[in-house]
Every structure is written in structure tokens, then in C-alpha cells.
Design a protein around this nucleic acid. Sequence first.
DNA 1: GCTAAATGTTGAT
DNA 2: TCAACCTTTAGCT
Length: 263
Amino acid sequence: MPEGHTIHRLAAQHKDMFAGAAVRATSPQGRFAQGAALLDGRVLEGTDAHGKHLFHRYAGDVWLHVHLGLYGAFSHGGAPPPEPRGALRLRLVGETTYADLRGPTACEVIETPRRTVLLARLGPDPLRADADPVVAWRRVSRSPAPLGALLLNQQVLSGIGNVYRSEVLFRAGIAPHRPGRELAAAEWDALWTDLRRLLRAGVRSGRIVTTRPEDRRRGRAAAADRCYVYRRVGEPCRRCGTPVRAQLMAARTVSWCPHCQPR
DNA sequence: GCTAAATGTTGAT
DNA sequence: TCAACCTTTAGCT
């Protein structure tokens, strides 16, 4: 269930699990057999995440590039791994742990030039220390497109998915329909800062929780009331009780509260 | 057992 | 703008 926080978390986990030693790579499903053969026996030198793209750097300018897409997922455990079950695209086995990858949109072995092309398509990632929010602001502030679409556009900024886009706009009190060019610079700064805070919390916990404790029902754990508006169409807003609305925007369902986020 | 939906992207129209 | 694609799971029957 991948937005940017999932990918950065995986990069850190895989570095801990495998870096500095040779890994065994197989593709029990067969669809990545050639790539796995290229990786098998190589030493993992480091990991990296840009937006929703995960990279492993192996010795000899060999990179593994993974994009989980909508359904992709890793599962991890201690070595030795169990018998492969189901459609298992890639299995990496280290000295003490293993990682299984299922259902990714992209799983490929690449070299630096291809990686450069991939990264050139991505806007700044709020989770990265080298990200410059002004680069995204230039695009946003000149665009007639609604913010709800701009936030999902990985060329504008990267790592934001359908949950974070609805939730960060609720937290800012901004309707997703507002055109980017009608946003004030201070509002963009606040959105960027809040996105970074939310994403970092997601990396730490491994789940998306955007509600403040005072906005959760009494006694409810964060997991129960984790979002303000995402997938809550028709339910009462946690702040004002107005029914949450939803519509398609940029080919995905965006949700908002018409009272807390006036047009 | 079947169907629809899901935190996404790409390439064709 | 739309369909295709990758896979699992929830909610039906």
C-alpha cells in the first residue's frame, strides 16, 4: 500500500537487512528471471528512494529499480525463507533475512543512465534532504490545474498519493478544486511543511495517520480514525459533522469537507 | 467461487 | 480521457 513513505521505509529496511554483503536473488514466478540472475551473488552497496521509486545499488553500476504501483508489496522475514507461494516476482535472501516482492508495476535491473532519466521525471520529494520546495512552487503557482491534481502529479512533486493529497488539503482547509495559481506562497510553504511532517510520521510508523488526537473519537486508537476525509464519503466530518464529499480528480477519487474546505 | 476495489503509472486515442 | 496492467483482499454468492 504504497505512497512515498512506504518506499523510504523499505529503502531503510533493505539497507539494514542486506547492505555490505552478497544477496541471493531468484524469481520463482519467472517473470524477472533474467534480472534476478544479474543480481544473484552481488553485494548490495546501498539503497535509495525518490518519490515512489525504490533503488538498490549493487557493485558494478548495477541498480535494481522497483515501483510498487497500486498493488505491489514487499514482505520480509528471517532466513531461511519459506517455500515460495503464489506469484513471487523477486526473492532476495541475505545472511539472516529475506525479502519477497509481489505485484510491482516495475522491477528491473538498470544502469546509471536509465536511472538519470527516471529521476529527471520527478519533482522534489518532501522526504529527501536535497528537495527544493521552490522547484515545485514554480509549477504550482503558474498552473491553472486544481491543487488536487497538482499534488498527485509526480513531475510537480513526488511521493504524494491519493491518501496524502486529500488529507493534507483538509488539514490546510483548502478545497482540492483551488487552482494552483490562486495559492499564496505562504500557503504552499505550509502545505510542503505539513506534507513533510506527515510523510516522516508515515516512514516511522509504516502507516498513514493524519488525524490529530483531539479529532479522533474518544478512546479510539489512531488506526481506527486514521484519516479525516479519505474514503469517508458521506460520513460526517470529524471537525464539523458536514457529510464528506468526493469526486474524480486526475482520474482518482478525491475527498473533502465542503464546510472546512470552502470553494 | 466470483467480482470489485485498492495508497499507481503508462501508452494509446 | 481511457484502458491496460500487476496482485491481493473484502464482500458477496
